[in-house]
């Protein structure tokens, strides 16, 4: 099928984009990489009356590696993250995350910001950004606010963003020492959405796992580091923690099976950073 008719706006500044979205009200939609929105428009699951194309806004681009943080413009493409030498040194988990997303021809267009705002429960970026304690900078008609990534996702395809707000930049804190952190997932084929995935962060006294692909927003569990030599005990602990999470089954597998996969990928991640 084909999209319904819409008015197309291609602003050059964030302020203009916000003005267009405010004026359009409920019918307005921002367009970033189009890798989630355009399929929905092609099938008429999304029928915006005004489409505000963000791709011409220079202020939404750019990767900055500073001493204490990494800053990504919302429009940074997945492939640019995967290819960035600077990011590979600063925070290698970002490149690994990007390379898990879809396929080359998806990653060349799809953006980090679009993935977070789309908030697919199986998407990698919301979980990784929550696990790393990232902050999202939102710009709206009344100014700029920052929201922790872990509080931004409210549910499947639902976030704290207002219809007239733009996600402008993403700030990811960076420890002075290299962070022991990785992401693992299980998908039916490489590039498919994850059936279950986990981001593991070695956080000093404890290890934290942020799970995605279980049906809801990313959820984090922590286990004290003292247990880490004993994999059987850890598996038991993780199984108990994952049992308490809300998990939805679908045509690819039931909730119980997904919980087992979640524990398996969590352990796989842990073996790399323990």
């Amino acid at each position: 099928m084909k999209p319904v008719r819409f008015r197309y706006e291609a602003p050059h500044t964030v302020e203009e984009a916000v003005d267009h979205l405010s004026a359009a009200g409920i019918g307005g939609k921002a367009l970033a990489g189009g890798q989630s929105l355009v399929p929905m428009m092609n099938f008429r699951l999304a029928r915006p009356s005004v489409l505000v194309d963000l791709n011409g806004i220079a202020a939404l681009r750019g990767i900055t590696v500073a001493e204490n943080h990494v800053e990504l413009g919302a429009l940074v493409r997945h492939q640019a993250v995967a290819d960035s030498e600077r990011l590979r040194h600063a925070l290698p988990v970002l490149a690994r995350t990007a390379s898990l997303i879809g396929h080359w021809g998806i990653r060349t267009r799809g953006t980090v910001g679009g993935s977070v705002v789309h908030a697919d429960p199986s998407a990698e970026w919301p979980a990784v950004l929550a696990a790393l304690g990232a902050e999202l900078e939102l710009v709206g008609p009344s100014g700029t606010r920052r929201v922790p990534a872990g509080e931004f996702i409210l549910g499947p395809l639902t976030t704290a963003i207002e219809t007239d707000e733009i996600l402008a930049r993403i700030y990811i804190p960076r420890a002075p020492a290299p962070l022991r952190c990785t992401i693992e997932e299980m998908a039916r084929r490489p590039g498919d959405f994850a059936l279950a995935g986990s981001v593991a962060v070695h956080a000093g006294q404890e290890i934290r796992w942020t799970f995605f692909g279980l049906g809801g927003p990313p959820e984090t569990v922590a286990v004290a580091q003292a247990d880490r030599q004993d994999e059987a005990a850890l598996r038991q602990q993780l199984t108990e923690r994952v049992a308490a999470l809300e998990v939805t089954g679908d045509m690819h597998g039931g909730a119980e099976w997904r919980r087992r996969v979640a524990v398996a990928v969590a352990l796989r991640a842990w073996r790399q950073i323990a």
């Binding site: 189009g34 355009v38 998806i106 267009r109």
Partner: peptide, 8 residues
């Protein structure tokens, strides 16, 4: 490479 079906 890009998907030309996902771009206007």
């Amino acid at each position: 490479p890009i998907r030309s079906c996902l771009m206007f």
